[in-house]
């Protein structure tokens, strides 16, 4: 009974929504010209990066805070802490992972650098870094994490703190997160570098802190 009601409601909802989509009037607000006009003053030449780190810097700042909170949530759940041991994995697999992971770090740095003028940026670079860590863990080269050490804690929070520091430094000049056009490019690159590093650690941590709660064997 419940199944039928839910399916009928879902069907009705999607039909109504699709009908609305097809009849939608033209949007009254178009932000594309505003983005294009201010691109020269934003410090980067790629519009998506400009939106993420300049026009809508708030979102990105709060996003990294949310990620950090999610990681705290996982740590606070108190997974059963047991020592994780590295098991013997297949040698060719390990060799492949050893070859691939430095390349992935290079790709991450390239993505970070290229984000200024073409698709790329801190998020993608951080994701590639995290993927490299997961790959190393799956081939038994990198143990899972139990408790974050002091250094790791700084690494996890560093991107957020750096971003927050730059944002508050801008407060002295007038508004939060309003970069001077002359230095915007360098500041964005600095923030993005911190974000990439911390994002990589946080996203890897989401996996590596959780994977250890079994205690292996």
């Amino acid at each position: 009974m419940k199944r039928l009601v839910v399916i009928a409601a879902a069907l009705a909802f999607s039909l109504a929504l699709i009908a609305t989509l097809l009849e939608l009037p033209a949007a009254t607000i178009d932000l594309r010209p505003a983005v294009a006009e201010n691109l020269a003053a934003s410090g980067v030449a790629h519009p998506v990066t400009a939106v993420l780190l300049n026009y809508r810097g708030y979102d990105t700042l709060l996003e990294i805070a949310v990620l950090l909170l999610a990681l705290f949530g996982i740590l606070a759940l108190g997974l059963e802490r047991q020592v994780c041991t590295l098991r013997a994995a297949e040698r060719p697999l390990q060799l492949l992972a050893r070859l691939a992971s430095p390349l992935m770090v290079v790709v991450a740095v390239y993505l970070l650098w290229a984000g200024a003028w073409r698709p790329g940026g801190a998020f993608q670079a951080g994701a590639v870094l995290a993927a490299a860590a997961v790959l190393l863990h799956l081939t038994e080269l990198l143990p899972g994490w139990l408790q974050p050490s002091a250094r790791l804690r700084w690494g996890l929070a560093g991107g957020f703190l750096l971003f927050l520091g730059v944002a508050t430094a801008m407060l002295a000049r007038g508004a939060l997160l309003e970069y001077p056009p002359a230095h915007a490019g360098a500041l964005i690159l600095l923030i993005e570098a911190g974000l990439t590093f911390s994002l990589g650690l946080i996203l890897a941590g989401l996996f590596l802190f959780m994977t250890c709660d079994e205690g292996g064997d």
Binding site: G120, Q124, A127, A130, M210
Partner: peptide
């Protein structure tokens, strides 16, 4: 931009997380 992130995160990282949870 989203495609790059989706390939690395949506397929790679989420997949690893879900498979690991299933294995556990």
């Amino acid at each position: 931009d989203i495609g790059l992130a989706e390939a690395a995160i949506g397929a790679g990282l989420s997949g690893a997380l879900l498979l690991d949870a299933y294995g556990a």
